[in-house]
C-alpha cells in the first residue's frame, strides 16, 4: 500500500492509495463517514482498462480544528478494530 498526497490543506485532503480497490476503499469511506469530525468523504476509482489513473483517490473534508490525516488514521484504526471484533464474534459463534 503506497500513499501519495495529491492535495493537502488544513481541512481538506486528497490522497492516492495505490493497490486498493472497492473492497477496502468503500469500507474505509464508511468508517470515515461514521466520524463526527468528518464533513465529507468519498473516493474515486477508475476501471482497469480505462488507462490513466486507476488507483483510488480518497478525498476528505473535516471540521476546522482537526487534521484530515489524523482522521484518516483514526478511521483506519476503526476498520481494523471492526474486522477483529467481527472475527472474534464469528469464531465465538462457530
Amino acid at each position: 500500500m503506497e500513499l501519495r498526497v495529491i492535495d493537502k490543506e488544513s481541512t481538506e485532503l486528497s490522497i492516492e492509495i495505490a493497490g486498493e480497490d472497492h473492497t477496502f476503499m468503500n469500507v474505509l469511506k464508511g468508517a470515515l463517514l461514521e466520524l463526527d469530525t468528518v464533513q465529507a468523504a468519498t473516493y474515486d476509482l477508475n476501471p482497469e482498462q480505462s488507462g490513466g489513473q486507476t488507483d483510488p483517490i480518497l478525498t476528505i473534508k473535516t471540521d476546522e480544528a482537526i487534521d484530515p490525516l489524523d482522521v484518516l488514521g483514526e478511521a483506519a484504526r476503526n476498520v481494523q478494530q471492526k474486522s477483529e471484533n467481527f472475527r472474534d464474534a464469528f469464531q465465538a459463534a462457530s
Binding site: F24, L72, A76, V79, Q80, S83, E84, F90
Partner: peptide, 20 residues
C-alpha cells in the same frame, strides 16, 4: 470468513502505519 476479516484488518493496519 476469518481469513477475509483478517485481510481487511491487515490492510487497515498497513494504512494506519503509512499515515503516521
Amino acid at each position: 470468513v476469518t481469513n477475509a476479516a483478517d485481510s481487511l484488518a491487515e490492510r487497515a493496519t498497513e494504512l494506519e502505519q503509512a499515515v503516521q
